[in-house]
Amino acid sequence: MSDTGKIAQTPLFDRKANIRGYKLNKMAMALVEEHNRQAFKDNEEAYLDRFGLDAVTKAAVMSRDWHEMVRLGGNLFFILKISAIDPTPIISIGAAQAGMTPEDFIKNRLGK
């Protein structure tokens, strides 16, 4: 397979990433339920511990390091559930994925 069309620094979400990110994705999907969102807000670290997240993954979630969560196997559609807690604008997440400030992301990627 050629490298044509690949974006530098973009983690591939393949079977290996899916397996690696299973606990992270399971935790994030559980946030669709109100009682889980409340538990996350009340004691984020304890909530993450319920899902057996390792220290690196917990640190990525707690610091809202979106790029690292994806690198660790987080499915973007699932980790967006985390962004609803704060709330974090999707532009900020896109900018983090691209390694840009939100302002540069808007200008360079959205042409505004």
Rank of each mutant, 00 (worst) to 15 (best):
Glu103His: 13
Glu45Leu: 14
Gln97Leu: 09
Met100Pro: 03
Asp104Gly: 04
Ala95Leu: 08
Lys41Gly: 02
Lys112Arg: 07
Asp42Ala: 03
Trp66Ala: 03
Ala60Val: 07
Lys16Met: 08
Gly52Val: 14
Phe105Gln: 00
Arg20Gly: 00
Phe51His: 03
Gln97Trp: 05
Val61Asp: 01
Ile19Pro: 11
Met62Arg: 10
Leu48Pro: 04
Gly74Lys: 01
Asp54Tyr: 07
Arg50Cys: 13
Asn18Arg: 15
Asn108Trp: 06
Val56Tyr: 12
Asn36Lys: 04
Asp54Glu: 07
Thr4Pro: 05
Phe78Lys: 08
Ala84Arg: 13
Ile106Asp: 10
Ala55Leu: 11
Lys23Cys: 12
Phe78Gly: 04
Arg37Val: 08
Val70Pro: 00
Lys16Tyr: 08
Ser83Arg: 04
Thr4Asp: 15
Lys23Pro: 02
Pro89Gln: 02
Gly73Asp: 06
Lys81Leu: 05
Ile90Cys: 07
Ala95Gly: 05
Leu110Glu: 08
Thr10Asn: 13
Glu103Met: 15
Lys58Ile: 06
Lys16Asp: 10
Arg20Asn: 08
Met62Ala: 05
Arg37Tyr: 11
Glu34Pro: 02
Glu45Trp: 05
Thr57Val: 09
Ile91Lys: 15
Val56Ser: 12
Ile93Ser: 03
Thr88Ile: 07
Ser63Ala: 14
Lys26His: 15
Gln38Tyr: 00
Ile79Tyr: 01
Ala17Pro: 04
Leu80Phe: 07
Met1Trp: 10
Ala17Lys: 04
Met62Val: 05
Asp104Glu: 14
Gln38Pro: 00
Asp65Pro: 03
Ala55Glu: 04
Asn75Ile: 11
Val61Ile: 12
Arg20Phe: 02
Arg50Ile: 11
Gln97Val: 04
Ala55Gly: 00
Ser83Cys: 03
Ala95Cys: 05
Ala84Asn: 07
Phe13Asp: 05
Tyr22Asn: 02
Leu76Gly: 06
Val56Gln: 08
Asp3Met: 15
Asp104Arg: 12
Asn18Pro: 10
Gly74Met: 00
Lys26Phe: 13
Ala17Val: 04
Met29His: 11
Met1Lys: 13
Asp3Arg: 11
Asn36Asp: 12
Glu45Ser: 10
Glu44His: 11
Leu31Lys: 01
Thr4Gln: 14
Gly94Ala: 06
Ala98Val: 13
Lys107Phe: 09
Asp54Val: 07
Leu12Ala: 10
Phe77Pro: 01
Tyr22Lys: 09
Thr101Cys: 11
Lys81Asn: 14
Ser83Tyr: 05
Val70Gln: 01
Leu48Val: 02
Val56Ile: 15
Gly73Val: 03
Asp54Leu: 03
Met1Ser: 11
Asn18Ile: 13
Lys41Glu: 05
Phe77Thr: 07
Glu103Thr: 12
Leu12Pro: 09
Phe105Val: 02
Asp42Thr: 06
Ile19Thr: 09
Phe51Glu: 00
Asp3Tyr: 13
Pro87Gln: 08
Gly94Ser: 10
Asp54Asn: 15
Tyr22Ile: 03
Asp49Asn: 15
Phe40His: 01
Glu33Ile: 02
Ile79Gln: 02
Gln9Pro: 03
Gln97Gly: 06
